[in-house]
Simulated scan of single mutants.
Amino acid sequence: MRLPTEPGPAREGAIAVARRAVELRVTLIDTAHLYGWGANEELLAEALYPYPDDLLITTKVGVAPPDPPREAALCGRPDFLRDQVEEGLRRLRVERLDLLQLHRVDPEVPLADQVGALRELQVAGKIGHIGLSEVTVDQLEEARQIIDVVSVQNRYNVLDREHEAVLDACDAAGIAFLPWRPVHPAVGSSEIGEIAAELGATSAQVSLAWLLHRSPVVLPIPGTATIAHLEENVAAADLQLSDEQLRRLDQMTAAGR
Rank of each mutant, 00 (worst) to 15 (best):
E142R: 14
V152P: 04
E142K: 11
H163P: 00
D160M: 12
E141T: 07
L132Y: 09
H129R: 15
D148P: 07
V150T: 15
S133Y: 01
E141C: 03
L159D: 09
R144G: 07
E142Y: 05
H129S: 15
I146Y: 07
Q145V: 06
N157R: 01
V135T: 00
Q139C: 05
I146F: 05
T136I: 01
V137P: 07
V158K: 05
D160R: 13
S133R: 03
H163Q: 14
N157D: 12
R144L: 01
R161H: 12
S133F: 02
Q153E: 15
I130H: 09
L159F: 08
R161C: 12
V152T: 05
V135N: 07
V150M: 08
L132I: 06
Q153P: 14
V149R: 04
L159E: 11
R155L: 04
N154E: 02
Y156A: 04
V149Y: 03
V135Y: 03
S151C: 13
D160I: 00
Q145M: 12
V137S: 10
I146A: 02
A143P: 09
H163R: 14
D138R: 13
I147G: 10
V137Y: 07
R161A: 10
I146H: 06
Q145R: 15
N157F: 06
L132Q: 01
R155Q: 14
V135E: 03
D148S: 13
E134K: 02
A143H: 00
R155D: 06
I146C: 01
L140T: 07
H129T: 13
H163V: 06
V150K: 07
E134D: 15
L140D: 06
I147M: 05
R161T: 06
R155Y: 00
N157G: 10
R161M: 10
V137K: 02
